[in-house]
């Protein structure tokens, strides 16, 4: 029996109102211990109010080689960003 524990990715919500952010990874035999290890490791200075743990093997990532086709279509849609629009000086609350 191998004693190698799988790798887990840890996501921490630092306070209410914010998203979970990737904090790092750790090893654990199962999800319950992964969660507890994450609590001990990544929130020992009260850095979090909520934790997710995900087996690293369960993450599908976009390939860096696909970078251009994957993300470029969004780059030519500046109208999605508020700064695209010109507003006369003095107009407020827009």
């Amino acid at each position: 029996m191998s004693g190698d524990w799988p790798l887990w990715e840890v996501f921490v919500r630092s306070r209410r109102g914010l998203s979970h952010t990737h904090a790092g990874s750790l090893h654990a035999p199962d999800a319950e211990l992964a969660l507890r290890n994450a609590r001990d490791l990544y929130t020992r200075r009260s850095e979090g109010v909520s934790i997710w743990v995900v087996p690293s093997s369960a993450i599908t990532a976009s390939s860096p080689d696909e970078k251009d086709p994957f993300f470029e279509p969004a780059a030519d849609k500046p109208y999605r960003h508020p700064t695209f629009y010109e507003i006369p000086d003095g107009v407020k609350h827009l």
């Binding site: 999800a31 319950e32 997710w52």
Partner: peptide, 9 residues
């Protein structure tokens, strides 16, 4: 074992 577990720390 669930693959994703959320809990309050």
């Amino acid at each position: 074992t669930k693959t994703t577990t959320e809990a309050t720390a």
